[in-house]
Each structure stands twice: as structure tokens, then as C-alpha cells.
């Protein structure tokens, strides 16, 4: 469903057609791949919907510079299921099975950018599940975060948090 477009497509194309017609919407990923979707999908993506509303529906090509062509199909898949009312536990379990840690984070940021509430809630839980019962070091590695506490601050926190260091899962490096 993706088609390559030339770089001048980066500028917005303004449709002259009647806004009430059900023309498809083109979502353009950060790496300039166009995804054509049904206009109803915008209802799930608040950021896209408000973009359309602000221009009275005249704009049907929407650039999404923060979202890659790798992530966008996942987002579209989830939204289409959501519109069809087919988000089930089974679907979500299958959906998340396909994603590695890096992709979960990317999708979370995409969902945040597009303001897709259901997907955000779902991915929050997925991330929470993946860092639950893991060590602080694991979480830092998972998110690529640098420890910016001073050694003194770190030592104090370790003392106060001694109770969390018992019964932690061994770090599971194979997950990625």
C-alpha cells in the first residue's frame, strides 16, 4: 500500500474536490512514503483529524515527519481494527508479539504524536509489562538512558530502595 514519491511531494497538496466526498487521505511518513487510508481513520488520530478540521477538509495529504514508514503501517493496522470495533485481547496479544522493544518505543512515540488514545493506553501497558520487575540497569539500557545522578545521590537512592532489589527478574537480554 506504500508508494514511493519524489521529494517535491513534501509540500502539501491541496485538493480542489468537495470536502464531503470520501476521498482517501494520504499520510506521508518521515521518509517520504505515502500511505493511502480511508478518511474515517482520522477519527482515531486526533492530530490528523484536527489538521483536516483546520483546513476544512481541503487538505488530504498529511505529512507526518516524526513517523517512519516502518512504524506507520502498524499504527494504521491498529486504527483500522479499532474503527471496525475489532480490538480484542487476542488481536492485541498477536500485535505485540510482532514487535521488539525498539519498535514498541517507536510506536509509543508515534501514537503520542498522533494522539491515538487507545493505542497509547495499550502501549503504556505493554511497556510497563516489559519493564516490570526488572532492574534499574535493565530499564536504563532498555530506554538508552544515561544515569545522571551523582554517585552520592545514587548511593542514597540505593539505600532507600534496598527493598526493591530483592526478587528482581534476571535481566533478559534475549528479549530484543
Amino acid at each position: 500500500m506504500a508508494e514511493e514519491v519524489s521529494s517535491q511531494m513534501n509540500s502539501l497538496s491541496i485538493s480542489e474536490t468537495n470536502p464531503s466526498s470520501s476521498a482517501t487521505i494520504s499520510l506521508v511518513s518521515g521518509d517520504d512514503i505515502v500511505f493511502k487510508v480511508e478518511p474515517t481513520i482520522a477519527k482515531e488520530m486526533e492530530t490528523v483529524q484536527s489538521f483536516i478540521d483546520e483546513t476544512d477538509g481541503k487538505i488530504t495529504t498529511i505529512p507526518l515527519p516524526n513517523i517512519s514508514s516502518h512504524d506507520l503501517p502498524y499504527v494504521i493496522e491498529y486504527c483500522e481494527k479499532s474503527i471496525a470495533g475489532k480490538i480484542t485481547k487476542e488481536f492485541e496479544a498477536e500485535f505485540v508479539k510482532k514487535l521488539n522493544n525498539e519498535e514498541v518505543k517507536e510506536l509509543f512515540l508515534a501514537a503520542n504524536y498522533l494522539n491515538i488514545k487507545k493505542l497509547l493506553d495499550f502501549l503504556s501497558q505493554v511497556i510497563a509489562d516489559r519493564i516490570a520487575n526488572k532492574s534499574v540497569e535493565y530499564v536504563r539500557r532498555y530506554f538508552g538512558i544515561e544515569n545522571d545522578f551523582t554517585p552520592e545521590e545514587e548511593a542514597k537512592l540505593r539505600e532507600e530502595l534496598a527493598w526493591t532489589f530483592t526478587g528482581v527478574d534476571p535481566d533478559d537480554e534475549d528479549e530484543n
Binding site: 512515540l109 509489562d129 526488572k134 532492574s135
Partner: peptide, 21 residues
Amino acid sequence: ILVRIFTALHVADLAKASMVC
């Protein structure tokens, strides 16, 4: 964004999150 993720954490994991950075 962090707060949204943290709402899904239990007390012990939230405490650990507080010492990440």
C-alpha cells in the same frame, strides 16, 4: 509520556523508575 507509562506500574516498579535518572 513517562507519567502515562508509569500509571501502569506497580509500586515497586514505580519506585525503581524513580532512580533511573
